[in-house]
């Protein structure tokens, strides 16, 4: 029983990481109509910034993390200003390819700036364990779970209850009408890229202590987040988040009780099969197109 709880606690931790990344992807999708394949690469880049601030400049980990968030917000704004804003007339498919191009740029620049050696980034809270019903979880793990929930809760509150949220939701449902109604859609889109960037680096900082900081640190997170979006459906903000926690739990259960090598792979196949029966995801609906 205690191992089961242990697995679940671990899953909640990875689940929050996936959920932050999935939320980042769906925010961009809903406001810019782009599936952002560069999400993981940009998050990786900013995680390197944090690592650089911490290792090379010797800045306190919390301040370094803050620095990474600032750099991610700035980078998000730059991406919007320099690239995304000029793609209004571009075909939707071509927009996805633009994000793949962005991914190549980031993957190419990162090793030039930060080198090719794997780097280490410690936990935010170095030591300490909590026992829950015989299962152990580190304070850092708990912090990740609750911080993730806090960030997402805050974002959902803003989306649902504030004027800014209304602007975002109206841009998401119909950008053209929103613009006519006086919603500053350009600012909304820019803000979305900034927030998405910040979510990316947070997921990177949470992932880093479990592995090492390399070019591919967020590959796995990005893939799981994309699949979470597919699983939860593209039509709501909460669907992908729920999908991410399902993947976090499902994956760890399969890895632990199924196959330690193939657990993740088996989960992908299960999800692909699930889509045969519910093609639009858990919370998605078929949209009747007007012809």
């Amino acid at each position: 029983m205690s191992t089961f709880i242990q697995v679940i606690l671990r899953s909640l931790e990875t689940g929050s990481i996936y959920a932050l990344a999935a939320l980042s992807i769906i925010i961009i999708f809903r406001t810019s109509n782009i599936v952002n394949f560069s999400q993981g690469a940009v998050g990786m880049f900013n995680t390197f910034v944090v690592t650089y601030l911490f290792n090379t400049m010797g800045i306190n980990i919390w301040l370094a993390a803050l620095g990474g968030i600032v750099s991610s917000i700035l980078l998000g704004i730059v991406i919007d200003l320099v690239i995304i804003r000029h793609t209004k007339k571009v075909h939707p498919e071509a927009k996805q390819i633009i994000t793949l191009g962005m991914m190549m740029i980031v993957l190419g620049i990162a090793p030039i700036l930060f080198g090719v050696d794997p780097l280490r980034l410690p936990k935010m809270i170095e030591t300490g364990n909590l026992s829950v019903l015989g299962a152990d979880i580190s304070y850092n793990g708990l912090f990740n779970i609750f911080f993730g929930l806090l960030v997402m809760g805050g974002l959902f509150f803003i989306l649902q209850k504030t004027k800014i949220g209304l602007a975002v939701r109206s841009t998401a449902s119909n950008e053209y009408t929103a613009k006519l109604m006086g919603v500053p859609t350009k600012t909304v889109t820019m803000g979305a890229w900034a927030v998405a960037g910040a979510l990316g680096v947070i997921s990177g900082i949470m992932t880093a202590p479990m592995t090492s900081v390399t070019l591919h640190i967020l590959d796995d997170v990005q893939l799981n987040a994309l699949i979470a979006v597919v699983l939860g459906g593209f039509q709501t903000f909460y669907g992908p988040v729920v999908g991410a926690y399902i993947i976090g739990v499902g994956r760890n259960l399969l890895l632990f009780y199924g196959s330690s090598v193939w657990g993740g792979q088996i989960l992908y196949i299960l999800i692909l099969l699930f889509l045969v029966f519910r093609p639009h995801g858990l919370f998605g609906k078929k949209i009747v197109k007007k012809v």
């Binding site: 571009v90 071509a94 633009i98 191009g101 190549m104 740029i105 190419g108 620049i109």
Partner: peptide
Amino acid sequence: SYVLNGVLIILVII
């Protein structure tokens, strides 16, 4: 070269 390809993709598309 990888960066250049990425830049080229974006420039060509736009």
